[in-house]
């Protein structure tokens, strides 16, 4: 492999990684705080993608001509409305099950995932929705006589947006009272409640943040891939969850790192091997990492409390 292909796949992998990382954050936060796999999170991302697409069409119908303005408006709209979905899913399907046996919320989450998928299929139709490319252009770096590296504007935008969100988000968790409440609830929900943390509200906010990050990922997917359908949430969801586990579930930097690893595998695999087996590679790496480093790349190793 020549250096230009290597760098090109690196950039593509970084873009994919940013995208999986954003979804993975939602999984890892929810897992951290209530210890459940929010199986419907992938579908929340799918809902975010649909809301983004509808937003683009709506704003262009309303006469917003500037692409950056449209993207900004859609970003806000998608984050807000997807957050409502995230909140509602928690309120309806998970909150009543808090404190019950471990499998009940998982089944409820799978049920919610099925409901969301079929709801979107019902209201928006099953056909694949195409969007003509909106963000064009990019940068071309010359590496040698015959070697170039293309970074599209969109890729730059995706990576930039993800880094900005990550930074803001880390600030929230590390420095604000909300973040403190969140970390306290994560450690011990009962104790946090006794100390005056509004646990329900903290959990709701976690879902809201997770869903709005997923909405950003949905927006990116709409722009980057140009096609969406009601089923995209499933595969993206399990890959993002894989990313979260890979990075060490509960760890925010871990989720991003895991996303990056998955993104790189996805982008480099087809260079050497059959594209069709790409997902096999992703899960293969997951199994290997879990066997040799069961708490993930950045997860805190758990000392068995005897």
């Amino acid at each position: 492999m020549t250096i230009d292909i290597f760098l090109q796949q690196l950039v593509n992998g970084l873009t994919l990684g940013a995208f999986y990382g954003l979804i993975a954050l939602g999984y890892t936060m929810v897992y951290g705080i209530i210890g459940m796999i929010n199986f419907a999170h992938g579908d929340i991302y799918m809902v975010g993608a649909f809301i983004s697409l509808i937003g683009f069409l709506l704003f262009s119908a309303l006469g917003v001509a500037s692409v950056p303005v449209a993207i900004l408006l859609v970003l806000v709209v998608a984050m807000v409305f997807t957050a409502v979905y995230g909140w509602a899913v928690e309120r309806i399907a998970y909150r009543p099950l808090r404190g019950s046996q471990r499998l009940a919320p998982l089944i409820s989450a799978i049920g919610m995932s099925i409901v969301l998928q079929n709801f979107v299929q019902l209201t928006q139709g099953a056909r694949v929705k195409p969007l003509p490319p909106m963000v064009q252009g990019g940068y071309r770096f010359t590496l040698g006589t015959d070697a170039h590296l293309n970074v599209s504007l969109l890729q730059a935008l995706i990576v930039f947006l993800t880094v900005a969100l990550m930074a803001g988000f880390t600030y929230i968790i590390r420095r604000t009272p909300l973040g403190r409440a969140q970390r306290a609830t994560e450690q011990d929900a009962t104790m946090a409640a006794l100390l005056g943390v509004n646990v329900n509200r903290t959990i709701s906010i976690t879902f809201i943040i997770g869903a709005s990050l997923a909405a950003v990922a949905g927006l990116m997917a709409t722009l980057y891939y140009g096609v969406i359908d009601f089923f995209i949430g499933f595969v993206a969801g399990i890959k993002a969850f894989t990313a979260a586990v890979l990075g060490g579930i509960g760890s925010l930097p871990g989720a991003m790192l895991g996303g990056l690893v998955i993104g790189m595998i996805e982008s480099f695999w087809p260079v050497y091997f059959d594209l069709a087996y790409r997902d096999v590679a992703v899960f293969g790496v997951l199994v290997l990492v879990l066997i040799f480093r069961p708490s993930g790349l950045l997860g805190r190793p758990e000392i068995e409390k005897v």
Binding site: F81, V84, P130, L131
Partner: peptide, 24 residues
């Protein structure tokens, strides 16, 4: 109110795919 908020994007609009492309 929550139902209305949930309905706004996904029930209030429908994406139609046709030969001309996507329409709302």
């Amino acid at each position: 109110l929550v139902a209305a908020l949930l309905a706004v994007p996904l029930l209030g609009f429908r994406l139609n795919v046709s030969a001309q492309g996507l329409s709302l």
